[in-house]
Amino acid sequence: MGLVVGLGGIAAVFVVRALTPVLGPWSLPNRVQDLLTLSISVIIESLPFVILGIVLSILVQVWVPDRWIMRILPRNAFLRRAMISFLGIFLPVCECGNVPLARGLIVKGFTVSESMTFLLAAPIVNPITILTTGQAFGFDSWIFAARLVGGFVIANVIGWLFSKHPDQDSLLTDRFAAECRLPDPHEHDQTRWQKSVELFTRESGVIMPALFIGSLIAGLVQVAVPRSLLLSLGSNPLWSILAMMALAFVISVCSNVDSFFILPFASTFMPGSIAVFLVFGPIIDIKMLALMRTTFRAKVLVQLTVIVGLLSALIGLVVNYFA
């Protein structure tokens, strides 16, 4: 029954999608048209990564035997988080896919601080990002070193800080904490496939609205804030860092390709600010905050943003001073 209605719905959407362009060009004002194009492009660009993230999350939660990941990790908390920072090498999802995966890891038994370490490190410490950053700026550049070391350090500092929190669950939204607390409700009568589908529905229900809203805000800011404003700040050692953090926050581009995106700015912006863009962007931006809000409380995100912001600014200033 549901299947028929669903398939009918898909078919109907497809027909609408195929027919509307025939109705002639819609002369929307340029700005509105561009807002839609920009927002839609964020959605379409992120969608495959989000699905990959959800699928990996499903694999980790449903298909990987219990405690299988736990077993290979060291017991010492510091070493454990350091190891977790490198998990991104084996699960190369860029940051939008990381949120569902991090959720899956929490459900699987990671502490919240450990999953945060993963969430923050994986977009930077992963083979695709390392390769593209190296290609763009050179493997021996200040920027490359600052990004990799910076990403690793920030993730571990944040992980250490939040591990100090005695009540890890209180960092999570109640809804997600409740989901974690639930013993699998249909353990007895559900097959793994059914559980996978169930998880997919649940995760997409949480992630998709966040993605849509994040994309729309990213598109809006793009259309509203003149790029020249950011660029004019670019070559001041202090303002360039704030400008780059603002740009990273606004643009919400994936960590896999942000090096190529920012490369053209390298001539006008100081190296430290480029490093800041590459360190701060994958961790904190509009889209990521919207996605992370599905999992973490607003207060936690504020604390996270402040510390990541300060740490990235420090990295940028140090690079600017010495480079």
């Binding site: 050692p237 202090l238 600014a313 200033l317 140090v318 600017n320 001073y321």
Partner: peptide
């Protein structure tokens, strides 16, 4: 951050 901002400022 303030210290390095100052150093950058004076450089």
């Amino acid at each position: 951050v303030a210290a390095f901002a100052g150093l950058n400022y004076l450089q």
